[in-house]
Write a protein that binds this DNA or RNA. Structure first.
Length: 895
RNA sequence: GCGAGGGUAGCGAAGCCUGGUCAAACGUGCAGGACUUAAGAUCCUGUCCCUUAGUGGGUACGGGGGUUCAAAUCCCCUCCCUCGCACCA
């Protein structure tokens, strides 16, 4: 008997030799693009990967069997800091390290037997890939989607590079975990904010995305509708803008707060306050990233000594500095309305600033805009001069219009989403194709000179950007004037690489960025599978790229991913697998011990894809046992007394019915990616097959059922199923076989069961008669498990002939002493039966069928045995039981 | 604080949307039996409590309340857990 390792190797080899998973565009076949988030090649697979790929592969295999032309590719997100850090630490260079890691991870993926079209493999560190990053960058540049500016940026002191906002988590770098500092540096940006509105709007058109991802993106984009109000500074020709969504409270402004980082701040300080403010700014900057993130948010601030003039009342409004105002949102200046804003209220109370009410609720009470829907609030404006009494929402319009006339306000839509900072001061990434020339300033590298390759002579010391150490790289000639020039040494964020790789897969060898026709055929991705951690990073960038490339006329795809599945984490002993806890299970070891099929099947069986998966060693063994159980079914000796009679007995019909029912269920479950339930249903069928095999079975029925079982299991445990497919004498690969089709007609198992019941009764009565040596029974007693049900249906039928009112029927039924005992159930069913027979629960209908069958059976029994058959309600006493043995009568019990 | 998702039998995990077929799939664990010299593997049976040859009854899906003839499932309140966002004006 072949071991699972032998089976695995055999079929993996065959799949590879015959290239059976290779695909090309075929307009005659419906396409299906199944994609997993490609991995960062760290050298070894972890359980999260295995889960991800098991899900994707099962689904791709299923779709293939369903007749789709399935694009199922794999590649590597190969640029990134870990490889560079490894080079610094252990010597060597990032490329070699990365290539080695790719080889390692690929070997394990192959070992898992994933049905990728390996001819489409890509790695983002290949020049023929990152060349197109540069090309896209240049297209974006031409279109004005790229710009360079000096900005306060998130500086990761450990990784020595800048981070995008999305990569800062709790004030720490997403990779290094180091506290992020603010630095002012010239940086490259992608203008993702141009697409903020579309990115937000089109979330509506993604019905098959998990709600939480959409909500997260929505929050991340963070749209607010409001207006900018300009404030004149007293005795200075300076204007300060504030952004507010609730301009209705403008009469409630008792102070204005400016961010410590605000560029105009220095000009707004009075001499007396200068020293103190400098101190405050200093302390704010120091604590900023640590304490601004803290839970305890006691507000601090300091008066600048300067006053602003209220645009309506002309009153003097003090200008304060406080670090609860963020520089990078809105204008960096906020109007303080302590009566209606919790933060302002806290601040006002602390510094004893006046509190002025300017709006009230419908009930005439003051309220704070905390848990209130700002855009649909009801109430009116008060204490606000000419605006008194106007409903809040309407009042906003009046106020803005009034200010607009004075040139002091404009409507404004504000987003939290900020432009995507893509420069990284590191080596292992795509060089940004720009040149600095003394004469010509900033010059893009001409397209024909792409790619700008990473130099081989860079030195990895850990200090600064290694690219700057390469003379060959940094020195160049200006493409415009031909003079000496310097190359940009920043590289691109690796998230640029992953923002369009799904397009490249469509035509990985294309001489262009991608082949338009191929993209037209394959895109969008029908099913995308990956971790939730990318909800606001990769998934937003990829959407942005898709839209930007569309606007460049390169595709006509609006949204890249139609269906999105975010898999749950793999945990063990109640915690995420991690080295520090020591609960890591190595996929390699599991594959060694139990094989790829078991590893994959367990991953799919243990939990629904979106849920957490609790790793259990016993569960793995159980899965392993199940596969062996299936194998034994195939290896069973068919020659052992199977019935050859062509007529199908009840037990044959039953198993066939079960098979079709299971097939229907499994198909539906896989379609909805509820793999664990699908596998559970297959297990049930396997259990039934074992039972079927116990009794007299027919080879044809057994074989047919088993064949279907193996086909259903094939997407989950492909190696074993290929092997079993062959052992059962089938030609070709099961991977390329067609998904079986169920026959609705054969599913009606209840009718079969009833028939079986009658048949069984015949047999049982015959044997009882024989045992009791009874030749001529006068009467046969049929005991039924719930006789009152049948009785109920009989009465019900009678009543329906004459009475139409459900309540009357109910009354009549309840008057019956037999049914009275079961009043609850009677009351349950009558309204249902009266309402709509088609909507009856299945079991009620079944009971009705059973009743009819029983009546038929009774008749048949009477004919066959030539005696009266009586259906007994119940056997309450032993006396009655004793009658069973009374000669001249036969009794049989029916469930 | 805001937002999302959870709490089901010894354990993992379905069922909830669309109330009745639910003492609740499937797996695991446990118990008994068969096979075996024995162990393992395998197969069968049982596995909330009481009772039975069959059956029947009681209690139960975090806690409390409500709607309904009927609630794990719908509504309200409450407790606990996990995960996102977090002074966004």
């Amino acid at each position: 008997m072949a071991t699972f390792t032998e089976i695995q190797n055999k079929w993996q080899q065959k799949w590879a030799d015959e290239h059976i998973f290779r695909v090309t565009e075929d307009p005659k076949k419906p396409k299906y693009y199944c994609l997993e988030m490609f991995p960062y090649p760290s050298g070894k697979l972890h359980m999260g990967h295995v889960r991800n790929y098991s899900l994707g592969d099962a689904f791709a295999r299923y779709k293939r069997m369903m007749g789709f032309n399935v694009l199922y590719p794999m590649g590597y997100d190969a640029f990134g800091l870990p490889a560079e850090n490894a080079a610094i630490k252990q010597g060597g260079n990032p490329e070699d390290i990365t290539r080695k890691n790719i080889a390692g991870i690929k070997a394990q993926q192959k070992q898992l037997g994933l049905s990728y079209d390996w001819s489409r493999e890509i790695a983002t560190c290949n020049t023929d890939y990152y060349k197109w990053n540069q090309w896209i960058f240049l297209q974006f540049y031409k279109k004005g989607l790229v710009y360079r500016k000096k900005a306060l940026v998130n500086w990761d002191p450990v990784d020595q590079t800048v981070l995008a906002n999305e990569q800062v988590i709790d004030g720490k770098g997403w990779r290094s975990g180091a506290l992020v500092e603010q630095r002012e540096i010239e940086q490259w940006f992608f203008k993702i904010t141009d697409y903020a509105q579309e990115l937000l709007d089109e979330l509506q058109q993604l019905p098959h995305w998990p709600g939480r991802v959409k909500i997260m993106q929505e929050n991340w984009i963070g749209r607010s509708e409001g207006c900018n109000v300009s404030w004149k500074v007293e005795e200075k020709h300076v204007i300060l803008d504030t952004f507010t969504t609730t301009v209705d409270t403008i009469y409630g402004v008792t102070f204005v707060v400016i961010s410590p980082e605000h560029p105009k701040l220095s000009t707004l300080i009075t001499k007396e306050q200068e020293e103190n403010i400098k101190k405050y700014i200093e302390s704010a900057r120091k604590k900023s990233e640590i304490e601004r993130m803290g839970t305890d948010k006691e507000k601090t601030g300091i008066f600048t000594g300067t006053y602003l003039l209220h645009p309506f009342t002309g009153k003097k409004i003090p200008l304060w500095v406080a670090d609860y105002v963020l520089m990078n949102y809105g204008t960096g200046v906020v109007m303080g309305v302590p009566a209606h804003d919790q933060r302002d209220m806290d601040f006002a109370k602390k510094y004893e600033l006046p509190i002025l009410q300017s709006i009230e609720s419908q009930e005439g009470e003051s309220f704070v805009y905390d848990n209130v829907d700002k855009y649909n609030v009801k109430g009116r404006i008060i204490n606000s001069g000419e605006f008194n009494g106007i409903p809040i929402i309407e009042g906003r319009k009046h106020i803005v219009e009034s200010l607009k006339k004075k040139g002091l306000a404009e409507w404004k839509i504000q987003y939290k989403l900020r432009d995507w900072l893509i420069s990284r001061q590191r080596y292992w990434g795509t060089p940004i194709p720009m040149i600095y020339c003394k004469n010509c300033n900033l010059v893009p590298v001409p397209e024909q000179e792409l790619p700008v390759m990473l130099p081989k002579d860079a030195i990895f010391t850990g200090a600064g950007n290694p690219l700057e150490t390469s003379e060959k790289f940094t020195h160049c000639t200006c493409p415009q004037c031909g003079g000496k020039a310097r190359r940009e040494t920043d590289t691109m964020d690796t998230f640029v690489d992953s923002s369009w790789y799904f397009l490249r897969y469509c035509s990985p060898q294309s001489e262009a960025v991608f082949d338009k026709q191929a993209v037209k055929y394959w895109m969008p991705v029908d099913q995308y599978i990956g971790g939730i951690e990318h909800a606001c990073l990769h998934l937003i960038y990829a959407r942005f790229f898709t839209k930007a490339l569309r606007d460049l006329g390169l595709t006509d795809v609006d949204e890249p991913f139609t269906n999105l599945l975010c898999q749950g984490m793999v945990i063990k002993d109640g915690a995420k697998m991690s080295k520090s806890i020591g609960n890591v299970v190595d996929p390699g070891e599991i594959m060694e011990k139990f094989g790829a099929d078991t590893a994959r099947l367990f991953m799919l069986f243990a939990a629904l894809p979106e849920k957490e998966l609790d790793w259990s060693d016993q569960g793995v063994e159980g899965t392993f046992r199940f596969l062996k159980r299936v194998e034994r079914l195939v290896d069973a000796d068919f020659s052992l007394d199977p019935y050859t009679d062509d007529n199908l007995q009840n037990r044959d019909k039953h198993i066939i019915g079960k098979m079709h029912a299971t097939l229907k269920r499994v198909t539906d479950l896989i379609e909805h990616i509820k793999f664990s339930l699908a596998i559970g249903a297959i297990m049930e069928l396997v259990n039934d097959l074992y039972k079927y095999k116990e009794g007299p079975y027919k080879k044809s029925v057994y074989g047919e059922t088993l064949k279907t079982t193996v086909l259903m299991l094939a997407p989950f445990a492909p190696h074993l199923c290929e092997e079993l497919w062959e052992r059962m004498g089938n030609e070709g690969f099961i991977s390329l076989a067609s998904w079986p089709v169920y026959d609705e007609q054969k599913i009606d198992k209840k009718a079969q069961a009833c028939e079986e019941l009658v048949q069984q009764t015949f047999a049982d009565i015959a044997s009882v008669l024989e045992l009791a040596k009874i030749t001529h029974p006068n009467e046969i007693l049929l005991f039924v498990a719930k006789p009152w049900k049948h009785y109920f249906f009989a009465r019900m039928q009678e009543l329906l002939q004459t009475v139409k009112d459900p309540k009357e029927i109910m009354k009549a039924l309840m008057a019956d002493p037999t049914l009275k005992q079961h009043g609850q159930d009677v009351v349950k069913w009558v309204p249902r039966i009266m309402k709509d027979t088609s909507k009856l629960p299945k079991h009620v209908l079944d009971d009705a069928i059973e009743y009819a069958t029983l009546m038929d059976g009774k008749q048949a029994l009477e004919e066959k045995f030539g005696c009266a058959v009586q259906i007994m309600k119940e056997s309450e006493s032993t006396e009655q039981k004793a009658q069973i043995a009374i000669p001249g009568k036969a009794a049989i019990l029916v469930k």
